[in-house]
Amino acid sequence: MATRGGLGQEARRSIALLAAPFSYAILLLAMPLGAVVLFSFWTQDFLDIDTTFTLANYEEALSQPIYRMLLGRSLWIAGAVTLVTVVLAFPIAYFVSFYVAPSRKSLWLFLITIPFWTSYLIRVFLWKVILGFNGVLNTSLQGLGFIDEPLTFILYNANAVVITLAHAFAPFAILPIFVALERIDRSLLEASQDLGENKVTTFLRVTLPLAMPGVVAATLIVFIPTIGDYVTPRLVGGPDGLMIANMIQTQFLRLNNAPLGATLAILAMLSVTVIALLFIWLNRKWLRTR
């Protein structure tokens, strides 16, 4: 049955169904993003916005060392957070998948998500209490006689940012790795042993390669939001722990230079895109052979 006079009934219904989410996406995603892109090519002229198209912001953002330093630090911190999170998440996911009785797995996953019951902000403040000069950690260690002077390298610097974010994103890393491990057919591990490999070599030759998609997913899930985080660096980062997002916020709100802020946001976004694409490509490479 050919459709007569333009769109068939099905096509019209599809459009009607798509209209709402599509306009939602336009309004809430494409328009703000478009606005940011547009702003990045304008300039701030004291109180007004000069709407002449120019690359001046990009020149400034790329030539001033402060911006490059902040972007570099953001990438470095996000990388460190990702590494710490994924490396610590893997054994937890492995334990739950391989050593917890099947009937208890849901309970374990539920317990892992408990930190989410409190607000992110409160968790950051709690780390301040734990890591502070007179905080829980320092008082305990001093009380136990392990240290004489309070440790100062754990708060108001990059270390504190890494610790806090790694904790905040742990469940996001555990879950995809857990799912990937759950999907591994256990008879593959027996087959590997049957073919002469011991537990360690079986892990390296079978378990780990098959868990890689989960590891890559965990890496992306942790890395992408961390690079744009500005709450944690502001609260626990001190002057050395500030990241690019803090500068973007400063440009927009304090320095009233929305165009430069927009430019920095675009540059940060581009860096994330490049790294994300790299990981997706890596993942494809892993997945290609299956």
Binding site: D185, S187, L188, E190, A191, S192, Q193, D194, L195, G196, E197, N198, V206, P209, L210, W286, T289, R290
Partner: peptide, 19 residues
């Protein structure tokens, strides 16, 4: 242990390594 026995097995699911 299984990896040191002079036996090899064909599994019901075949257990072919997908990667």
């Amino acid at each position: 242990p299984a990896n040191e026995r002079p036996t090899n097995m064909v599994f019901q699911s075949y257990a072919i390594f997908p990667h």
